[in-house]
């Protein structure tokens, strides 16, 4: 499925692996939390990039001891209305200092895109029939924010800032 970074489609370097799918010989894979737990040692020993998918009811705390090994954490939106992943992203970055990629996948609408990037999400997986200019547009429709984002480090006022979105292309 297409992956967006800063509003533009990018080449995906990850393979999203189902629990019963065999590990490919080469390349980065994303596995479920359950599979990660079952095959943790083997996945690390494989020497290739690895990431974990979290369901919306799996908190970021589940990965505290694993983050050093993970190149990506993928957060699921089973329904766009289920906003738990917003907090998961914030926890990963702010509480656990996670520096790898955070991606969001599942049912996401463009109107959520700016919120996601402000909380430290890098990439969004979008169904092919939903790719379009709306995503890049959504990053710039509103140029003002009243809260600090993850990127802001207390150097700006608590309540008001201009949001500059950088669109890649």
């Amino acid at each position: 499925m297409p992956v967006l970074d800063h509003g533009r489609e990018i080449e995906d370097r990850w393979t999203d692996l189902a629990d019963d799918a065999a590990l490919p010989a080469e390349g980065g894979v994303i596995v479920s939390l359950e599979r990660w737990r079952a095959e943790r040692d083997a996945l690390i020993a494989r020497g290739q990039p690895v990431g974990v998918r979290l369901k919306s009811n799996q908190l970021a705390t589940e990965l505290v001891d694993d983050l050093a090994h993970l190149g990506v954490v993928a957060l699921e939106f089973p329904k766009f209305r289920d906003g738990r992943a917003f907090s998961a992203a914030r926890e990963l970055r702010e509480r656990f200092g996670y520096k790898g990629e955070i991606r969001a996948f599942g049912h996401i609408i463009p109107d959520q895109y700016q919120f996601l990037t402000r909380l430290g999400v890098d990439t969004v997986v979008v169904p092919a029939d939903r790719v379009g200019p709306a995503w890049a547009h959504a990053l710039n429709e509103i140029s003002i924010a009243y809260q600090p984002a993850l990127q802001d480090h207390g150097t700006v006022s608590l309540l008001r800032r201009h949001v500059k979105a950088e669109i890649k292309g």
Binding site: R81, D82, G83, F86, Q112, F115, R118, L119, Y146, Q147
Partner: peptide, 16 residues
């Protein structure tokens, strides 16, 4: 008013 501003389009707390 401070809470109004802080909560306006809060990125994390808009899909509670």
């Amino acid at each position: 008013e401070i809470l109004r501003q802080w909560s306006t389009l809060h990125p994390e707390f808009t899909y509670l």
